[in-house]
Simulated assay, not measured.
Amino acid sequence: MQAIEIYTSPLCGYCHAAKRMLADKGVSFTEYDVARAPDKRQEMLSRANGRHTVPQIFIGETHVGGYDDMAALERSGKLDPLLQG
């Protein structure tokens, strides 16, 4: 299973949806709350090529993008293989 990292903020509905999707798949992830940790926001901006909205999701070395991007991978059947590595 690939390491999963997700940058979030507490009041973000898309963040909650992304975490719920991952939890429903039974995968664990590391969450970084960018509202409480400005250094993590800077890290996210750097890793996500300047994308500043949350969530920003990383599976292994792959930058998935936001919730809509991950949901599109799920609909196309590409999310599970990515999670497996």
Results as ranks from 00 to 15, higher is better:
residue 68 D to V: 09
residue 76 S to T: 14
residue 66 G to P: 10
residue 26 G to C: 04
residue 78 K to A: 15
residue 29 F to W: 00
residue 22 L to T: 01
residue 83 L to Y: 11
residue 80 D to S: 14
residue 13 G to W: 04
residue 1 M to Y: 09
residue 49 N to E: 10
residue 32 Y to R: 00
residue 22 L to K: 05
residue 78 K to G: 15
residue 23 A to G: 14
residue 67 Y to K: 03
residue 64 V to S: 09
residue 38 P to H: 13
residue 9 S to Y: 05
residue 23 A to P: 03
residue 13 G to Q: 04
residue 10 P to E: 02
residue 66 G to D: 06
residue 34 V to H: 05
residue 47 R to V: 02
residue 13 G to P: 04
residue 26 G to F: 11
residue 61 E to W: 09
residue 23 A to V: 03
residue 66 G to Y: 09
residue 44 M to Y: 07
residue 18 A to D: 06
residue 21 M to L: 15
residue 37 A to W: 05
residue 11 L to F: 14
residue 35 A to T: 08
residue 29 F to E: 01
residue 57 I to N: 05
residue 85 G to K: 10
residue 7 Y to D: 01
residue 57 I to H: 13
residue 59 I to D: 02
residue 68 D to P: 06
residue 61 E to T: 08
residue 82 L to D: 01
residue 28 S to R: 03
residue 11 L to K: 13
residue 30 T to D: 00
residue 30 T to H: 00
residue 4 I to T: 02
residue 49 N to W: 09
residue 85 G to Q: 13
residue 17 A to D: 08
residue 47 R to C: 05
residue 41 R to Y: 14
residue 11 L to D: 13
residue 45 L to V: 00
residue 55 P to D: 05
residue 27 V to E: 00
residue 67 Y to G: 01
residue 47 R to L: 11
residue 24 D to L: 12
residue 70 M to Q: 06
residue 18 A to Q: 04
residue 68 D to E: 15
residue 70 M to T: 05
residue 5 E to V: 00
residue 81 P to L: 12
residue 2 Q to H: 13
residue 67 Y to C: 06
residue 11 L to N: 15
residue 29 F to A: 01
residue 24 D to T: 08
residue 16 H to S: 07
residue 4 I to V: 04
residue 1 M to A: 14
residue 72 A to K: 14
residue 47 R to Q: 10
residue 45 L to S: 03
residue 72 A to S: 15
residue 65 G to S: 09
residue 12 C to N: 01
residue 45 L to N: 00
residue 17 A to R: 12
residue 12 C to E: 01
residue 26 G to L: 05
residue 70 M to P: 11
residue 27 V to A: 08
residue 55 P to M: 02
residue 78 K to V: 09
residue 19 K to P: 06
residue 27 V to C: 05
residue 47 R to E: 02
residue 9 S to M: 13
residue 85 G to C: 08
residue 67 Y to E: 03
residue 70 M to Y: 13
residue 33 D to K: 04
residue 57 I to L: 10
residue 50 G to A: 12
residue 36 R to P: 07
residue 83 L to T: 03
residue 31 E to I: 02
residue 13 G to H: 03
residue 12 C to Y: 08
residue 53 T to H: 10
residue 4 I to W: 08
residue 77 G to K: 00
residue 51 R to M: 12
residue 12 C to F: 03
residue 19 K to W: 06
residue 40 K to L: 11
residue 17 A to I: 02
residue 39 D to M: 11
residue 67 Y to P: 08
residue 85 G to F: 13
